[in-house]
Design a protein around this nucleic acid. Structure first.
Length: 880
DNA sequence: CGCTCCGCTGTTTTT
DNA sequence: CAGCGGAGCG
């Protein structure tokens, strides 16, 4: 496949030193050096720490780069510096990132520094995975593959595993393929082969057949000439270990290694890096080849080879460990998918004598924002500890605002208003973002913004290449490009429907296995035999003929044209044209877009490789729009104005993180909060609500503990307009929630924004000052810590946010019928779980009075006098 | 073989 | 409440 073709010849360059540097770069370097005091232009404007990070080219270097301290700049300048000073050729630099976006940005920025042309010669700048593919294509045969192997996506993997589970005679619903796929992924993330996985893991799946399944899976991949994402790292690691000569070639090759976002590396990536960064002969010691132990093992295993000393006798060319890792332990938010913060914390032990450089001067945010973020993150243990600072000292700068809202609808409304207020002050929507913890929160904002006619953009929604129609289309292309791609073939034999059901497919499958040929070929054979009934036979014959024709056309027809033909002739386009569902026009549009995007690639094959590795399609960032995205996808971005809604216990920190991750789970949530805070340059607004609709039920919530961890000096607690006063009063004049929010007049004047923080209509202007809130804080330590985090609730199916049976109520009427609006009332609900009967008259804080219409466990359906019928948990209503 | 209905399960996401 | 997957029926 391609990706290969554009490769440069491999060991082409001499192991030469600067003098032999290509003239282009040398010339550039000369020019660059022309500044006064001898410093090249590209070094200008760097602060001393940044400059040190750039110029310390030799030996291991860890750059601890706090948020907004110019991390990418350091990385790119460092590469430019290495190139410009002739320390290495572009092809001798290995630069790894996690995302394609980061790789793209790096390429671009290096290009700006040293000229576009020079970057093209950097074939080893890319994601871990793309570099992994490259290595694997070169040495495929050492992993039992051919160099044109296919990369399977998760969808394929799950289907394949399902087949294997069934083949083992296991019940595939008792042992879901998806679960096993995740286990596999975890193992591979740790660099564990079938024989190295923990016994317990192996036993826990499929009646103890975990290991067996793993083996079967790898074998199957091999016969399919395929590999999964994990293999892209895992195979190279194996190859490096088993073939020291191969590894040695790369040692010779890569003079400088750079790693971005080091805090996100998982164990496999760590091993991969270490193998490459270690000195030549140290690659395969007995210990590193055996079943890989846990962290302590590796951590204590010293790097081999004399540091700075003479090369060991016999070693040809000593390769120094010029590895530079850049990262921020405080921004490690991917622990749940295998990232090991430990990797970064352990750096100086892994690479003795490492230079550690801290970048703490922040160029992004105001002092208030920085102060808030630093104070919050200081609550974490086990960090390197950095203190971000800024010279910025503008009394005009706003403090960080904390707002309260009655419920998520009001939260969306208020944020919408705030955005419009900023807009009136000539702020661009592009400079504003709403960062949520969980994607279900986005909906409220979308709804609101649609009614307002406010442009918004959701980042990180369903990916282009993951859509059904795109995957189908790609499956056709894959079979054409590689007739051995059985998984793709299976996906589309019967698409559009041509009466080829499970039975026929099984038969094709069996024939293929028996004949040891791809399914397509087996299908062709079957179609000519009389083993099938006429109908499937005809269908199959057509399919086979189609593919044969398309495969021939592959050599002669331009690939975009061919792609179109395939979709037409297969009937796929017609299938959607005849589909009358609402989304079919969109799907057709997507198919067109797919074809359009193919134009940039030389061939069908190179396009397919791109798709396998780069699952994202460019977003059109043209028009002015507010961004809505998760905190996770916001990492690395910055905005003038940031809104952080949903700071409530259970949502943020997320209950599940707490349940499953314990203390470290909480710390990761806190880092996530830190990431959120540090995205803001000037304006930062945090929100929490008292009531949230979760899984269709209204639940009370209490403010996030993270709010307590913000320093008062940098925070301004505003009422969100009127959350706890004014119109929010459910008893007032019946102005309370009518559900859809319609009919309520906008409580904010045109200058609503001016009112933030101002005294309000005599209610709770400062939520923190509320006696109830303070009491809640006091209680929380016991109540929360004891009750949150366990799922032992008896009556309660789901402990959502807020209280259930855990004896903790927020913002609700007290049991005695006394109401303290907006107050958090500790209570004990442990008594009588559902002491209600149909027909009972009850009171609910949000909806007022009503009658119980139905009872389902602890869920009540209530006909409210004013709010209509709602479903609520019994804990939230009191008898009248 | 394909369609419909029921029931279950609800973070975060890259490659 | 909503989206998905499995079971079961025509």
């Amino acid at each position: 496949m391609s990706g290969f073709s554009e490769d440069m010849p491999f060991f082409d360059e001499p192991n030469a030193r600067p003098a032999a540097a290509p003239s282009g770069i040398a010339a550039r370097a000369m020019a660059a050096r022309s500044g006064q005091n001898g410093a090249p232009d590209y070094l200008k404007g760097l602060n001393p720490e940044q400059r040190l990070a750039v110029e310390t080219t030799e030996g291991p270097v860890l750059v601890l780069a706090g948020a907004g301290t110019g991390k990418t700049r350091v990385l790119t300048t460092r590469i430019a510096h290495i190139l410009a000073t002739g320390r290495a050729f572009p092809s001798q630099i290995l630069a790894v990132t996690f995302t394609n976006k980061a790789a793209r940005e790096m390429k671009q920025r290096i290009g700006h520094l040293i000229g576009e042309g020079n970057v093209e010669g950097m074939p080893w700048l890319g994601t871990f995975h793309s570099i992994g593919v490259k290595l694997l294509r070169r040495h495929a045969e050492l992993a039992g593959l051919k160099s044109d192997f296919t990369i399977l996506d998760t969808d394929d993997v799950v289907r394949l595993i399902k087949q294997l589970i069934q083949a083992e005679g296991l019940d595939d619903k008792r042992w879901p393929a998806k679960t096993f796929a995740q286990m596999l992924d975890n193992w591979k993330n740790k660099g564990l082969g079938p024989d190295e996985i923990p016994e317990g893991d192996a036993r826990s799946f499929g009646n103890g057949k975990g290991r067996q399944l793993y083996k079967a899976y790898q074998e199957r991949l091999q016969t399919l000439n395929s590999c999964d994402f994990g293999d892209l790292l895992y195979h190279p690691i194996r190859i490096f270990r088993a073939y020291p000569d191969v590894l040695k070639e790369y040692h010779r090759k890569f003079k400088y290694i750079l790693v971005d976002e080091y805090q996100d590396t998982n164990t496999a990536q760590y091993m991969w890096l270490r193998l490459l960064a270690q000195r030549p002969h140290a690659g395969r010691s007995a210990s590193s080849d055996s079943a890989e132990g846990r962290k302590p093992d590796r951590a204590s295993e010293p790097l081999r080879g004399p540091r700075g000393g003479p090369a060991p006798a016999g070693a040809e060319q000593p390769v120094s460990v010029n590895i530079c890792c850049v990262g921020d332990d405080d921004q490690s938010i991917y622990g749940w998918r295998g990232a090991e913060v430990d990797n970064i914390l352990r750096f100086d032990k892994d690479f003795p004598g490492a230079t550690i450089i801290r970048l703490e001067r922040n160029y992004r945010s105001t002092a208030h924002i920085l102060g808030a973020a630093s104070h919050l993150i200081a609550h974490n243990e086990g960090r390197f500890g950095k203190t971000l600072f800024t010279d910025r000292d503008d009394p005009e700068d706003d403090k960080v605002h904390v707002h309260a809202a009655w419920d998520s609808e009001e939260e969306a409304r208020a944020i919408g208003d705030a955005i419009e207020a900023y807009q009136r002050q000539k702020h661009n929507l592009n400079d504003m973002a709403i960062l949520v913890r969980a994607s279900f929160q986005m909906r409220a904002f979308e709804d609101r913004f649609i009614t307002l006619g406010l442009n918004y953009r959701v980042i990180g929604g369903p990916r282009f290449y993951e859509r059904l129609e795109i995957r189908d289309a790609l499956a056709f292309f894959r079979v054409v490009a590689n007739s051995g791609d059985d998984l793709a073939f299976e996906r589309i034999v019967n698409t559009p429907k041509r009466g080829l059901g499970e039975a026929t497919i099984r038969q094709i499958h069996d024939t293929a296995r028996a004949m040891r040929v791809p399914m397509l070929e087996a299908a062709a054979t079957l179609a000519e035999s009389d083993e099938l009934k006429p109908k499937p036979r005809a269908a199959l014959r057509e399919v086979a003929a189609n593919f044969e024709r398309w495969q021939k056309a592959l050599e002669t027809t331009p690939h975009t044209e061919l792609a179109e033909t395939i979709l037409e002739e297969s009937g796929y386009t017609d299938m959607w044209k005849n589909d009358r569902s609402a989304d079919s026009p969109g799907r057709l549009e997507n198919l067109k877009e797919l074809i359009r995007s193919m134009e940039e690639y030389e061939s069908l094959r190179s396009f397919l490789e791109h798709v396998a590795l780069v699952m994202d399609a460019e977003q059109n960032a043209e028009q002015d729009a507010v961004s809505i995205m998760t905190l996770h996808s916001a990492k690395g971005l910055e905005f003038e104005t940031v809104f952080l809604p949903g700071w409530e216990e259970g949502l943020f920190p997320h209950q599940r993180a707490l349940d499953e991750g314990g203390r470290s789970g909480l710390e990761e949530e806190r880092r996530l909060a830190y990431v959120g805070l540090t995205r803001a340059k000037k304006n930062l607004h945090i929100w929490f609500v008292s009531n949230r609709l979760i899984h269709g039920l209204w639940q009370s919530t209490i403010p996030s503990r993270f709010l307590d961890e913000l320093p008062e000096t940098h925070v301004d607690v505003a009422d969100g307009g009127n959350s706890y006063g004014g119109y929010g009063n459910p008893y007032g004049g019946g102005a309370f929630a009518s559900g859809r929010g319609g009919g309520r007049q906008n409580p904010y004047g045109a200058s609503r924004f001016d009112n933030v923080g101002a005294k309000d209509q005599g209610s709770f202007s400062n939520t923190y000052a509320t006696p109830g809130w303070q009491r809640a804080q006091a209680n929380r330590t016991e109540a929360t810590d004891r009750n949150w985090g366990t799922r032992s609730g008896h009556q309660v199916e789901r402990i959502g946010y807020g209280e259930t049976d855990s004896g903790y109520g927020a913002g609700r009427t007290s049991v005695k019928g006394r109401t303290i609006e907006g107050e958090l009332v500790a209570k004990s609900v442990a008594d009588t779980p559902s002491a209600f009967n149909v027909g009972d008259r009850v009171f609910h804080q949000k909806f007022g009075n009503g009658n119980i219409a139905a009872i389902d466990g602890n869920k009540l359906t209530i006909d409210f006098d004013k709010a209509g019928q709602k479903r609520v948990l019994d804990g939230f209503v009191a008898p009248v």
